[in-house]
Design a protein around this nucleic acid. Structure first.
Length: 567
DNA sequence: TACCCGCGCCAC
DNA sequence: AAACGTGGCGCGGGTA
């Protein structure tokens, strides 16, 4: 059963129940917004919970969570629309061929956050006032129904997983990632010296700067200014064209070692120093805003706090509550395994039989060392042509012709300006008008060599994008299915161990997600059970997306009290 | 003062 | 080893 919710005004909500398969259900009812949590709670406790259909999870779910109510399943119409509007599977549908409408407007996530903060949508001029969720849902269902049988099942899974991701993102922001500000302060003090006011250089950082200045024989220097630093280096006779780490590393000069040390510390201070803690850690929790579907490939993005780039340096401040543990799970070499499954490459499937795919590639005689295997695979998926990666590619192609052929085909498709799709049907955008103009200019009679070269460069660049899109995007789908399956299992665990009314944070729950890695916060006595559920969910994700393809998706797990101990 | 953009580095 | 994908973010230095 589906239940469609529509915000009528700040105070009222229209509730429409759709019986599956029936064209008409019970008449719509209008309830007070304040009564919604109770309604949701009641229907969620029924033997078969409904699927809630709403315009945007970020506008509905935070308030329900704050009222202590969770939902099992939903349809996020905004995220689903975004997928169906572009998907090759539904390209001929009414939804995809219509003129752009209110469902194509992007909702700035910060507007939603503000709405959550003030607890109402009263005074906000949100886009979507004219959005009719019932009509949109019907269009979406028709679009999926009009696809091929495979398209129907794949898109159905993708939309369910994407919507589950929206629920998970809201729940993770609600629960927050446990963060010990005192431990963070100790980490900073150890590296930088005692806390200082913003704008003041901490003692240890200042000492390293003294070393740098001594080595350069200057009395003043602001390494934070690339221009100034570059000039200072050149005056000291060091021939560099930039101040990047990898270029400096190649230089032999007494200033390089302290300078790289300075850059490392300076980065820690500015990106994840005391200001970061003051801004982002409240009541022992880091609550970032996750943006499901925020990346073109389907990966999540984040807004604020750099949630998806937490440096390993500060992960020691991520500490479980007393008596609780983190279960940290990582899908081992996820993207190469995804490529194996998509391409049906038997040789690579054989190499991936164990937990370490890269070592497996060495063991089957395809490459000589594990580092080479890793560099070659990543290069193949990113489209590297030069360097060690490029040199290893022919060898890789001989050993795994189907896998490499698969990404090469995706690259060629992009170079022609055509679209590619992930396994479940998320489709890449078309290149923009500028790109097309460059290509057509180069194909005109009398095109200059420069125009031709420019066009080829742009074509190859778009090819690298589509090459990576199919792998990164399908990996994101696997991760969503993994996480959604785990969430369902954790909910059942909570119901069994704590009770049907267990609050999200009373029992094991997800607190962090990083593309191919998840962190569950749980009471110590649940940790072993959670590890089992994580593995079950991984196996299920593989079956859901790839059926019986002979590819395994092993996960490494660690039960820890500090995130820093996970790897 | 507010914005914009290139640089550089963090994550996967 | 160094030009090969997706992002976020803080800084310096420019402009309106």
């Amino acid at each position: 059963m589906h239940i469609v919710l529509q915000q009528l005004d700040g105070a009222r909500v229209r509730v429409v129940q759709l019986e599956d398969g029936a064209t008409e259900g019970p008449p719509a009812q209008v309830i007070a917004r304040a009564g919604l949590p109770a309604l949701v709670r009641r229907l969620e406790s029924a033997p078969s919970s409904p699927r809630w259909v709403w315009d945007d999870t970020t506008l509905w779910y935070p308030a329900l969570l704050a009222a202590g109510v969770r939902v099992s399943r939903c349809v996020d119409l905004r995220l689903s629309h975004n997928i169906l509007r572009n998907a090759a599977f539904t390209a001929d549908s009414e939804l995809a061929t219509a003129q752009p409408g209110p469902w194509d407007e992007s909702l700035d996530p910060r507007i939603a956050q503000r709405a959550e903060a003030i607890g109402t949508l009263f005074d906000l001029d949100l886009p979507g006032g004219e959005r009719d969720p019932l009509a949109e849902f019907a269009l979406q269902q028709a679009a999926v129904a009009g696809a091929t049988p495979q398209g129907r099942s794949h898109l159905g899974l993708l939309l369910a997983a994407e919507s589950a991701g929206a629920l998970i993102a809201a729940e993770m922001s609600f629960a927050g990632l446990p963060w010990d500000a005192a431990m963070h302060d100790r980490i900073l003090a150890e590296a930088l010296g005692p806390r200082v006011a913003p704008g003041v250089r901490p003692a240890k950082l200042a000492a390293v700067l003294d070393e740098v200045m001594a080595a350069l024989e200057v009395r003043e220097l602001s390494p934070e200014s690339p221009g100034e630093l570059l000039k200072a280096l050149q005056r000291a006779g060091i021939n560099v064209t930039s101040t990047r780490q990898w270029e400096l590393q190649e230089i032999e000069h007494p200033v390089i070692e302290p300078l790289l040390r300075y850059k490392k510390l300076s980065r820690l201070l500015t990106a994840n120093g005391w200001t970061w803690v003051d801004t982002w850690v409240k009541d022992g929790r880091f609550r970032p805003v996750y943006i499901p579907g925020g990346v073109v490939t389907g990966r999540w993005a984040s807004d604020g706090g750099g949630a998806l780039q937490l440096p390993h340096q500060v992960r020691g401040a991520v500490l479980a509550d007393p008596g609780w543990r983190f279960v940290v799970a990582d899908a081992a070499q996820l993207e190469p395994r995804i490529l194996t499954a998509m391409s049906g490459d038997r040789a690579m499937a054989d190499a991936g039989r164990g937990v370490d795919l890269y070592q497996g590639m060495v063991d089957v005689g395809a490459v000589d060392t594990r580092p080479h295997a890793k560099i070659a695979m990543l290069g193949a998926m990113y489209g590297a042509t030069t360097g060690e990666s490029g040199r290893l590619l022919p060898r890789l192609t001989r050993a795994f012709p189907h896998a490499i052929g698969f990404v090469e085909t995706a690259a060629r498709t992009g170079e022609r300006g055509e679209r590619v799709s992930t396994r479940l049907g998320r489709t890449s955008p078309l290149p923009g008008a500028d790109w097309r103009e460059i290509q057509s200019a180069a194909s005109m009679e009398g095109a200059t060599a420069a125009a031709t070269q420019r066009a080829r460069m742009e074509a190859r660049s778009w090819g690298r994008f589509t090459r990576n899109f199919v792998v990164q995007g399908t990996a994101a789908e696997w991760a969503l299915c993994w996480m959604a399956g785990l969430r369902t299992r954790l909910q059942a665990l909570a119901a069994a161990e704590v009770g049907i009314d267990a609050a999200l944070t009373d029992s094991a729950h997800l607190v962090f997600f990083l593309h191919d890695e998840i962190v569950v916060h749980c009471p110590e006595e649940q940790a072993d059970a959670v590890v089992t559920l994580v593995r079950e969910a991984a196996a299920e994700a593989g079956r859901l997306i790839f059926g019986n393809a002979p590819v395994e998706f092993p996960v490494t797990t660690a039960v820890v009290t500090s995130y820093a101990d996970a790897k």
